[in-house]
Structure formats: C-alpha cells, structure tokens
C-alpha cells in the first residue's frame, strides 16, 4: 500500500506576493519541495520567512503562483485529503469537544453510528474522556490542541499539515504532545508537513528537514534525519547522531536568522 518513493506533495516554483501598505511584499520565491508518501518533513526557518505561507498554499487556503500537486493533480482549494492543525488551535468555540471532533464527519456525511464510534475512540486516544461536553474555553492549551488534532484525524486525511502546532504550549506539554504525534504517525504513516521554529522538535519528529531562507523564502538546505525511532526519547535526545543533526540544522537556521536580522 504505502509507497515511500511515490511523491505525495509536489511544490513547484511556488511564489507568493502579499499586498501591504508599503507596497507588495514577496513572501516566497520559486520554492520547490517534494514530499513522498508516508514521509514526515519539517520546514524550519527564521520567523517571517514564509514557512507558514507555504503551508497555507499547500492547504489551498492561499492562491499563489506556481504549482502544488497532490497525488498527481493540482490543488484547486482546501480539501479533506489535507488535514490542518494551527498554532492557535482554531477549534469552533461554540461546539463542545465531542461536536468539534464530529464536525468534519458530519460534513462528509459519515453514517451516524460510524461517527459516534470514531469520536468515542478519538476522545479516548487523546485522553479527554469525561470532557466530551466541555466547550473549548474550559480547556487548557494542551487539551485544546489535542482536540484540534483529534478533529483533524477524525476525517482520516492522507496528509497532515501542521502549522507550529505546539508553539503555544509550555515545554512539558509540548514534549508529551510531540510523543503523541510521533506515535500517531508511526501507527498511521500519514504524510506529514510540519512547520516549526523549534529545531529540536523538527529533528525529533521528522525524516527530513528543510531549512528556509530569510524572506523571500526559499528552501536552501535539506537534512535527512536517520534516527532509530525504537529507542526512548531520553536515549535519543542524548545520542550522538541526534545532537550532530540538531547542531547542523541549528547552524543553518542561525545563518538565515542573522541574514534576516541584517535585512531589517
């Protein structure tokens, strides 16, 4: 089934210009990237480099020049094949935990009995049983992000687009959530595109890391991460391969951040 050499997402020469009060701003310039099926790719780069913009273009939320091709056909707009998780959770505040997770299933006309089964399973997976009838405002940041991930997983998208999903969480919660995401990915082998500014997070989670240049953004360096995922987080984080990869990526991002600083 899973073909690790088959391109799932192909980004070809994507450029994006924003209109601003001080004239047009070039956010992305001729970006190319291919993500294969079942791959976990992270995009890191200095803030404002356009990495989130690239993700929104892949999501079909923003129109841009160039092509984004999913499974061989060009992206026309948002689609249920691409599940998205945003940093600001983006839960519907007027729906309970249960109804938020059920929302996408309802829109896609999944049978009611099936729907409830999926929601119940996911509520258990994210460890929020007992909180089904709470509204988002009654939840902590970590709980909200768990619900947002569950809401996305409920529709079983082939691709996960994650926009700094753990950026607003405290350090401890973030590590727990990273482990959960890693476990889900190892189980389901979805194609994942993660945008983050946290280099350690990128190395811990991904197969491959793309470093973006300062604005206008372009992917300038790629690192393949070959780590043994079977060992524990503690072992992995202090291991030599982990740290040498992290240092290389960190230096690369650092160079771009300094370049971005000079531009200002």
């Amino acid at each position: 089934m899973l073909d690790l050499d088959r391109p799932k997402i192909e980004i070809r020469g994507v450029s994006k210009t924003y209109a601003s009060e001080r004239g047009p701003v070039l956010a992305l310039r001729g970006t190319d990237l291919t993500v294969n099926e079942g791959e976990f790719v992270s995009i890191v780069g200095p803030s404002g480099c356009g990495k989130s913009t690239l993700l929104y273009v892949v999501g079909g939320f923003l129109a841009a020049d160039g092509d984004v091709i999913i499974d061989g056909s060009p992206v026309q707009g948002p689609g249920t094949d691409r599940g998205v998780v945003f940093q600001e959770y983006a839960l519907f505040p007027w729906l309970t935990v249960h109804d938020n997770i059920r929302y996408g299933l309802e829109r896609q006309r999944v049978a009611a009995s099936e729907r409830d089964k999926i929601v119940d399973r996911l509520v258990n997976v994210i460890g929020l049983s007992g909180f089904e009838n709470r509204y988002p405002r009654e939840l902590s940041g970590g709980m909200k992000q768990r619900v947002a991930i569950a809401r996305t997983l409920a529709c079983d998208p082939a691709i996960l687009l994650l926009d700094e999903p753990f950026g607003a969480l405290d350090a401890q919660t973030r590590e727990i959530m990273q482990d959960e995401l890693l476990r889900i990915w190892l189980e389901t082998r979805k194609t994942v595109l993660l945008v983050t500014h946290d280099v350690t997070e990128a190395v811990y989670l991904s197969n491959r890391i793309c470093v973006m240049s300062a604005r206008p953004g372009q992917i300038i360096e790629e690192f393949v991460v070959a780590l043994d995922r079977s060992c524990s987080r503690e072992e992995l984080v202090i291991s030599e391969p982990f740290n040498s990869t992290r240092n290389k990526v960190w230096l690369s991002v650092r160079r771009q951040a300094l370049a971005a600083g000079k531009q200002e």
Partner: peptide
C-alpha cells in the same frame, strides 16, 4: 471571524454556502 476558523471548516469539508450558517 478568525481566518483559521474558516480555513479549518473548509479543510473539514464545509462548502462555501455552509460557511455562513456554520461559521
């Protein structure tokens, strides 16, 4: 209405007409 709410709704299969009553 936050942009991310509209985008989330769209990515979860909400059609444009449905966005009005639902979001």
């Amino acid at each position: 209405t936050p942009k991310v709410l509209v985008w989330s709704a769209e990515a979860l299969g909400t059609r444009e007409r449905e966005l009005w009553p639902r979001v």
